[in-house]
């Protein structure tokens, strides 16, 4: 690039940098406070002020968490459902979105309406449970993956991205004799890396954080997902719920304390942070492919 920045523009850069750094600190705080809490020893975790650094460092909670087997089975189950969910959702969402991106597809408006309707109306818990039960999916990972396979929101977002891909690219491919399927696989999909990455991130995080479906559909403890395990630890520390309290008393469970709670929160977020940079790469990659083709 030959473009040179003027002095004012450099000033703006500095301001932007400063603003972003402040923003970073502000948004980092809740996460940081959980890290601090997870490393805090014992009662210091109960404090009314800010948590900027641990007063007494302790790795006890991490040691406990690492020896807690259900956490790791939960991890495994969550990874399975997330990977399965992301891959299948991407495939079927893209398959559905591509035809709808053709404005002159027969009955396009009807199809879109049919799709949109599902975003706004649902039948509630009971029919969904009955459906899963009658399909024989109870206690299986498919009960967590299949119901959310097509979400109107994702389809519409993807459809709109496909529409923004220059029609001329497709036309030239068609002139070369390629059918729609080949165009879809070899042209549209590679060009759509940014939107695929976005949707993957959305549904990936959605699957990672989901717990209610697992609670309802999965009764085998060894198949429970991470978030259910985490909730269990959190509830064990909940003193406001009387029933939970009585149960705790009858089982003589001691409070596991705030450190363990924060530790499991941190442990559940970290994989997301590790994965993110890999996804982020595709935001940039999409542009480069686009530039070469263009």
């Amino acid at each position: 690039m030959t473009y040179r920045k003027s002095l004012t523009e450099k000033m703006i850069d500095v301001l932007l940098y400063a603003g972003m750094i402040v923003l970073m600190f502000v948004t980092l705080y809740p996460f940081w406070s959980q890290i601090v809490l997870s490393l805090e020893e014992g009662a210091s975790a109960y404090s009314t002020g800010f948590m900027l650094y641990p007063h007494k460092l302790s790795f006890e909670a991490y040691r406990l968490a690492f020896h807690y087997t259900p956490l790791w089975t939960g991890y495994l189950n969550t990874i399975v459902r997330t990977v399965l969910g992301v891959v299948l959702i991407l495939v079927f969402t893209a398959l559905t979105a591509y035809p709808l991106s053709k404005k002159d597809l027969p009955f396009n408006r009807a199809f879109t309406g049919f799709l949109l309707f599902t975003m706004l109306f649902s039948g509630g818990l009971i029919p969904n449970y009955l459906l899963i039960k009658n399909l024989g999916l109870l206690n299986s990972v498919w009960s967590l993956v299949l119901p959310g396979m097509i979400s109107a929101f994702n389809v519409l977002i993807m459809r709109n991205f496909f529409r923004s891909i220059p029609e001329s690219l497709e036309e030239s491919a068609r002139v070369d004799g390629a059918g729609y399927l080949r165009i879809f696989v070899s042209l549209i999909v590679p060009l759509s890396a940014p939107v695929l990455a976005t949707v993957a991130l959305w549904v990936g995080v959605g699957h990672w954080n989901a717990w209610f479906d697992s609670l309802i559909y999965i009764s085998d403890g060894r198949k429970q997902v991470l978030q259910v395990v985490l909730r269990k630890i959190v509830i064990e520390n909940d003193t406001s719920n009387l029933n939970a309290m009585i149960q705790k008393m009858s089982t003589n469970t001691k409070y596991t304390g705030r450190q363990l709670q924060s530790t499991v929160i941190i442990l559940s977020i970290i994989p997301m942070l590790v994965v993110y940079p890999f996804v982020q790469k595709y935001f940039v990659k999409g542009v480069m492919v686009g530039a070469i083709k263009g």
Binding site: F114, L115, T118, F121, S122, G123, G124, L125, I126, P127, N128, L130, L131, L135, L146, P147, G148, M149, I150
Partner: peptide, 11 residues
Amino acid sequence: LIIFNYIPMYG
């Protein structure tokens, strides 16, 4: 869509 969204809608 039909199986997992429309069928349960009778609820």
